[in-house]
Design a binder for these strands. Sequence first.
DNA 1: TGTTAGCACTCACTAGCATCGAGTGCTAAT
DNA 2: ATTAGCACTCGATGCTAGTGAGTGCTAACA
Lengths: 345, 345
Amino acid sequence: MELDERKITILKAIIKNYMDTGEPVGSRTISKYVDNKWSSATIRNEMSDLEEMGYIIQPHTSAGRIPSDKGYRFYVDQITLEKDNEAAGVQELMIQRIDRLESVLKRLAKLLANDTNYAALISGPRYHENKLKFIQLSRVDEDKLLIVTVLEGNLIKNTIVHVKDILSDDELLNMNILLNSNLNGLTIGEINLDVISRMKQQAGSHAGVVDLVLEQVAEVIRADSEELQIYTSGATNIFKYPELSDNQKASELLQTLEHTELLKELVDTDDGGENGTGIQVYIGEESPVQAMRDCSVVTANYELGEGIRGTIGIIGPKRMDYEKVLKTLRTLMVQLETAFKKEER
Amino acid sequence: MELDERKITILKAIIKNYMDTGEPVGSRTISKYVDNKWSSATIRNEMSDLEEMGYIIQPHTSAGRIPSDKGYRFYVDQITLEKDNEAAGVQELMIQRIDRLESVLKRLAKLLANDTNYAALISGPRYHENKLKFIQLSRVDEDKLLIVTVLEGNLIKNTIVHVKDILSDDELLNMNILLNSNLNGLTIGEINLDVISRMKQQAGSHAGVVDLVLEQVAEVIRADSEELQIYTSGATNIFKYPELSDNQKASELLQTLEHTELLKELVDTDDGGENGTGIQVYIGEESPVQAMRDCSVVTANYELGEGIRGTIGIIGPKRMDYEKVLKTLRTLMVQLETAFKKEER
DNA sequence: TGTTAGCACTCACTAGCATCGAGTGCTAAT
DNA sequence: ATTAGCACTCGATGCTAGTGAGTGCTAACA
């Protein structure tokens, strides 16, 4: 059987209607929806075909039809085809100049959640090759030093250490020079025994401090590349969709959203996504996360140059407004990247 | 009527039982609970009295009794009286040495939630009088400077700024000296026009940089004292308690937990709490937060010296295990404070 | 041959009703 | 003062009949 023009129209009508109401949609509804272009009986026949072809499902014998995963999939593919180059009245996102990327991401997640009425998720950037850009040692108290580590991409980390060795101001200055001249531009892998022993030699009596600092720096870099930060927002939006908010499912889904380790699967895709946009759509069973088998998940990868990349995701009911979500994510990607570039300038 | 020994025993038995089951408890259950010391009929009479006195409630005529807010209140007060100085097998909390307090707090919230099976909430410290301890300017790129601001209590903030004025290394050094000699030890209120104009004068041709830096520093301090950080964890634990997890209530509660601004009321109490322990117990209607009228909330204020203080809270059903929660919070307070003192050493 | 009107049929949902039983309050005996 | 016994209450459970949205099929029609 073939998916002709009329079947497509009807399928779309079913999906759109179901998106609005969340209730199975019957033949008469569709008939009215298309201005009685075809009678309900005709629609019934077509629906029967569509069901046979697997695009729609009848929850029970005497109910209307709802779209199947395959149906949604068709719909989504359709949308991505009809490239909406209409520049989409770019919403103002107000990415303010803030020092901490983290803070931007959190806000972004909140914004997305509010905007779409679905749950939003955003993963902090993973730095694939963390190069040291700059280290600064300063004294904060007599026996305490502040280590400021700046990594490629202007990621800044602070550590405070206690030293037994009290350094004079001059010695501190020298230590700074020593550290920077030896370490700048290196990744953690490149800081090998060779480099370390050379530095210790140069440090002379203060080799202990070198050890201490290196240890902290290593920890900072490691922590940052391992510890995958994921922020979620608007998780409670799922209560807006009855089909997700029965106690069992809601609880499971919310718990999953709370435990970031369960979300890794979603943000780990290095995949380019469909059409090279970096956007992925998981419908129902397609989702890699168990608890989201009744949802749809749309993820997009952002990349801020220098191998700094992360993922933004939207989690909603299968009947989510794919068109809007895709559009939102696409414009967001652009804005995020340009905003960052501007900042970087 | 008087609350005699037996009534107290029975009241406690009712509360304990209800804590376990979450179901109204009947006279026979209690009779068995006290090893048939009194018959169910006797219990019934006592229960009738207790109800009249307002300590328990009958949800409907032919059901058992559940504790009223007043009943819980009595129970909690009772517990706080019987000081559990039994040193309470101090649980290991593993507060590791981490540079960022934020990270500790997040972990703590998670730990608390896991431990108690209730929702946990923890507010980041508010700094009442932010004194500048130390400022460090470093060059990260040709036209970009890194400002590290260290506040009293070793709170560190980073900002990167773009400068038009390119400073030489020497000038940068001088600028650092200028900044620190003028600003150290001042609160933001103390940085007035007088100080600023003096600094600008000293800076000569680089007065613009002074402006830029001061602006950022001011922003950092302000942001930090205004922006109240609240972390929550284990919100989904509420699904473990049927009386809270009907859709309406669960949704409302979770939404409240997601919107930190709604939680301010809880952490804003400067009140010393009962018995000067800084611990507050809100039972049902006592809670200042609307959505928690069906819950109990226990909050504790921690103080890490220097006016740095915040709040930890536990949110659970009214039938929460007050004894455990109070004990946990109390020991946690101690541990947090000592851990911080050690770090501070 | 494709479309449509009509009709019998299905089945989730609801209201109404009887039943059940945990739990109560009261009374009378101990 | 305590307790055994009993009638009573009322939410919960289960059953039945009725309702209506929606289907599938057939036959008529353009």
